[in-house]
C-alpha cells in the first residue's frame, strides 16, 4: 500500500492530564503526526469530533462518565471513516474486544513504547488492522455464538475463518502469510474485512453483551 505523505491528524480522549501532556510532546516532535485536539472526557469529544474530522482518534477505555467504548460506538456511527485506536492500561482481551466490536480499529497498551505507539498510528492510518491472537479468540467466540447471519455477506468466508483461527492459535500475520502462501497485505485485508463484518454484526446483535459480560 502506498505510504501517504500527508500529515496524520490525531485527536486524543484521555482523562489523565499527565499522559495528555506527554503524548502532546511526543507528537509535537513528529513531522507526520499532528495532535489536533485533546479531550478530558467522552462527552466533550463527541460534541466536537465531527467538526474536527481527525484521521485517527486515540481513546482511553477508562474515562470518567461515558466510557471509551461508548464514545467509540457513538463516534464511529457518525464518522465511519475515522480510525479509532484504543489505549488501555489493562491487557484485558474482553474489554479490548468490546471496544473493537464497538468500532475500534486497533488497540494499544499504554505501556507500549512511544515508538510502538507511533507505528501503530501510522499503520492504522495506512489501512492496517492489528489483531492479536487473544482478540482473535474472542472474535471466533463471538461469531460462533452469533451463529449464521441471514445476510450471507455478513458471515465469515471459509478463508476468513481459517485465517481467524490461525490467528487465535498463535500464528502471526507473517506466519499465516507463509502458511497460506499469500502476501502479508492480503492477510491484513482479510483481517480488516473480519473487523468490518464484526462491526456490522455486533451493531445489531446483543450477543456481544453476553459475550463480554462478566
Amino acid at each position: 500500500m502506498k505510504e501517504k505523505k500527508s500529515i496524520i491528524k490525531v485527536a486524543l480522549v484521555e482523562d489523565n492530564a499527565g499522559i495528555r501532556k506527554s503524548l502532546e510532546r511526543l507528537f509535537a516532535e513528529k513531522d507526520d503526526i499532528e495532535m489536533t485536539r485533546m479531550f478530558g472526557d467522552g462527552e466533550s469529544a463527541l460534541a466536537e469530533l465531527a467538526a474536527l474530522a481527525p484521521d485517527v482518534v486515540l481513546v482511553d477505555i477508562n474515562l470518567p462518565g461515558k466510557s471509551g467504548i461508548d464514545v467509540i460506538r457513538e463516534a464511529k456511527a457518525a464518522l465511519p471513516q475515522v480510525q479509532f485506536l484504543v489505549l488501555t492500561v489493562y491487557d484485558d482481551p474482553a474489554r479490548i474486544f468490546q471496544a473493537l466490536a464497538a468500532g475500534a480499529n486497533g488497540y494499544l497498551l499504554k505501556r507500549a513504547t512511544p515508538t510502538e505507539l507511533l507505528a501503530a498510528i501510522r499503520d492504522l492510518y495506512n489501512g492496517g488492522s492489528p489483531m492479536s491472537g487473544s482478540v482473535a479468540r474472542k472474535v471466533v467466540q463471538s461469531f460462533h455464538q452469533m451463529g449464521t447471519a441471514p445476510n450471507e455477506t455478513e458471515n465469515l468466508s471459509p478463508r476468513e475463518n481459517e485465517i481467524l483461527q490461525l490467528l487465535a492459535d498463535g500464528y502471526l500475520y507473517k506466519e499465516i502469510a507463509e502458511k497460506l502462501s499469500i502476501g502479508i497485505e492480503t492477510v491484513r485485508t482479510y483481517i480488516r474485512r473480519i473487523y468490518d463484518k464484526l462491526h456490522v454484526r455486533t451493531r445489531t446483535e446483543t450477543v456481544v453483551k453476553h459475550l463480554t459480560r462478566r
Binding site: G18, S22, L23, R25, P114, T115
Partner: peptide, 14 residues
C-alpha cells in the same frame, strides 16, 4: 500509579 508510570515511560523513552 499506572498513569504516572506510563507518563514516566513516555518521558524516559523520549
Amino acid at each position: 500509579v499506572g498513569a504516572r508510570l506510563t507518563r514516566v515511560s513516555y518521558i524516559t523513552e523520549m
